[in-house]
Write a protein that binds this DNA or RNA. Sequence first.
DNA 1: CTCACTCCTTGCACTCACTGCATAACTTGC
DNA 2: GCAAGTTATGCAGTGAGTGCAAGGAGTGAG
Lengths: 226, 226
Amino acid sequence: MPYRGDVTIVAEAAIPSRRELNKAATREAIATAALELLRAKGMNGFTADDVANAAGVSRRTFFNYFSSPEAAIASFTQKYLDTVIEQLLLRPRDEALLESAQHALTAVEPKDLATLAETFALTQGDAQLSRFQLEAWDNCSSKIITAIGSRLGGLDAAGAAPGSTPLDANGELYLHALVQSVIACGRAAVEVWFRRHGEDISPASLAQLRELLVSAIGHLRTGFHS
Amino acid sequence: MPYRGDVTIVAEAAIPSRRELNKAATREAIATAALELLRAKGMNGFTADDVANAAGVSRRTFFNYFSSPEAAIASFTQKYLDTVIEQLLLRPRDEALLESAQHALTAVEPKDLATLAETFALTQGDAQLSRFQLEAWDNCSSKIITAIGSRLGGLDAAGAAPGSTPLDANGELYLHALVQSVIACGRAAVEVWFRRHGEDISPASLAQLRELLVSAIGHLRTGFHS
DNA sequence: CTCACTCCTTGCACTCACTGCATAACTTGC
DNA sequence: GCAAGTTATGCAGTGAGTGCAAGGAGTGAG
């Protein structure tokens, strides 16, 4: 195994420096430590101090990475949703958004889906934790909207329009309503899944979750006519 | 003006006792005090102590009513959404849900819509406050789902089914996806409105907000086909 | 009216989340 | 290996949020 030091290859996504690696590592350590404490003692069963100790960093460092213990937990949901966004942006541009969403939601590692499901289950019962989860889903909406918005027409966020025609009010509403509905259906699927399967994280159960996700978006595609 | 003391009439909604009136009054006082402080100094510009003093109660009493200053602010959004739910449940049962939603969203006092808009505007920029707003919208989803769920078929929440057939997994997903999408479209409308009109709470601006609300739900009705 | 009862308010004390600042440890480019 | 920039940590301070026990106001029966 030659060249163990600074690895050269992998041209993708820029070479992470040691600093960046360290930061990512401690961030990871803190988040997983928080998750394990949550598993073991439930929220309110541990403090920010405990998380810091378990992760092998000082309390102050903990707060350099996360604004609260809840934020550390919610980072897993964030991460899952970020990978979904990645997948979404990889889809062909001319594909219908709802179809892209169906593909993106299911094109993630089973492991990531599992932690999404688990954190969702563990989240039930703690108000503040739930709020952070909601925030994660909402952030996802915003990111997608900005991405799609800048893709077609002027920048969606306040900023100079580069070339094409900026979105009019109707188009903007359409985009926002569509994306937020997609996210809403995603959450609905997870919710229904949890009601049915509780804390069961088995592959079979996760397969059901996938199915629910697809089928929730499917309802959006075919429309609601009750 | 005879009988100024204990008024007898108004058979609707039970006679509120003096205790209940007092509680409602202090709750109201605290909430409005919080809102005024928010208007004047922005979030982070005041403490729970300040709110309590402004409302003429002790700090401890403040926390008897709200778990945090943010919760006090979010109570306005809660209230607005609760009246929407009321309106929604007043609609004929055989009406399509999406149509009911359009009516319910616009059948509220202009004043309430104004405070919804204002608190939304004031909320921008504070993370914790935003989370509480999200929670309010999400609570609204849950309430509607439970209401509709118990209306058709067995209780949606875990509980004994009274008479009719309980919802199967598909029906449950359908219901959740639909309701959460409606709420999502509501939020989307407010968001787009805010982007266009900023802090403008004039009647004309609010009329536009109403229009956006209806038209967002309209998108759900006609379906998304981009 | 008044006495007992219940619920609400308040002050006190305590834990812990979160932040600014100053200092030590570490990375990086030279 | 040295100077510069970053990150980790310790310290101290503010303020959120809670349990507890004492005082006060609304309630109901006699």
